[in-house]
Amino acid sequence: MIQLECGLHFDFAMQWLRKQSNEEHQVIVNGTDLYINISLLSIVGHGGMGKTTPWQHVYKDEIIEIFDLKMWVCISINFDAKKRSLQICWNLLKKKEKPNPDSHDALQRKFKEEVMSKRFLLVLDDIWSEEEEQHNNKWENVLAPPSCGSLGSKILVTTRMDTVALIFAKVIKKEEIVKLAGLEEDECL
């Protein structure tokens, strides 16, 4: 876990975003890594520290054109795997077609088809919950389809809680966590 002052995390994150390859972050477990093509960056900090706003601007910037697909999903407090899969699919498909919410398996297949062999950026914004540990298996479900993305795909997570960042690190089997440090009292004044 890297601890950075508020302003420095953005430079670090932009360097991460520009990396063409994930090779230095590969972790092989039992000879295989489902998420070998994906880099994960979790940004952890209190509300109002600048985890989301800078990324909203970057998301609209030309640097994002290096990705075939981009998806932004605000999670907040209520976690429902089917609802999140539907939200990601809707964001991914834009106005091509509305995904059918009836079958979670069908949603997962559609998601997998759309990201297969494509370089993507998935931003999961503002994830926090009182019951993070219960969501580990649910996040494995939601994050299974992106494992088919091509080399250089990225997942950016913003959260207020260390435990959420650690759940993602456990699911993706990579740990790149930036913890934002607040300002000193005299700097605030």
Rank of each mutant, 00 (worst) to 15 (best):
I2V: 14
Q3K: 13
E5D: 11
G7A: 10
H9K: 13
D11S: 14
F12S: 14
A13E: 06
M14R: 14
R18M: 10
K19I: 00
Q20F: 00
E24V: 09
H25F: 09
V27L: 09
I28E: 11
Y35A: 03
N37D: 07
S39G: 14
L40T: 01
L40K: 03
L41Q: 04
S42Y: 05
H46S: 09
H46K: 14
G47V: 07
G48I: 02
G50Q: 09
G50V: 06
G50P: 05
K51Y: 05
T52L: 06
P54M: 03
V58K: 15
K60W: 00
D68F: 04
K70R: 15
M71K: 11
M71L: 15
W72P: 10
W72A: 09
V73R: 07
C74P: 01
C74Y: 08
I77D: 13
N78S: 08
F79T: 04
F79R: 07
D80E: 11
K82G: 02
K82M: 09
I88C: 08
C89D: 04
C89A: 12
C89P: 01
W90S: 15
W90T: 14
K95G: 07
K96E: 15
K96W: 00
K96L: 10
N100G: 05
N100W: 02
P101D: 14
P101S: 12
D102Q: 14
S103Q: 05
S103Y: 00
H104S: 10
D105L: 13
D105G: 04
A106Q: 13
R109C: 01
K110S: 09
K110F: 00
F111L: 12
K112C: 08
E113H: 06
V115W: 06
L121F: 11
L121T: 01
D126Y: 02
I127S: 04
W128C: 06
W128H: 12
S129Q: 04
S129R: 11
E131G: 02
E133K: 14
K138T: 02
K138S: 13
K138F: 02
V142C: 06
L143A: 08
P145R: 10
P146E: 10
S147F: 02
C148N: 12
C148W: 07
G152P: 04
G152C: 06
K154Y: 00
V157Q: 07
T158L: 05
R160L: 02
D162E: 12
D162G: 03
T163L: 11
V164D: 04
I167L: 15
A169V: 00
A169C: 11
A169G: 15
K173Q: 15
E175D: 05
E176D: 12
K179F: 02
L180W: 03
E185W: 05
E185S: 13
D186R: 11
D186I: 07
E187W: 00
L189A: 10
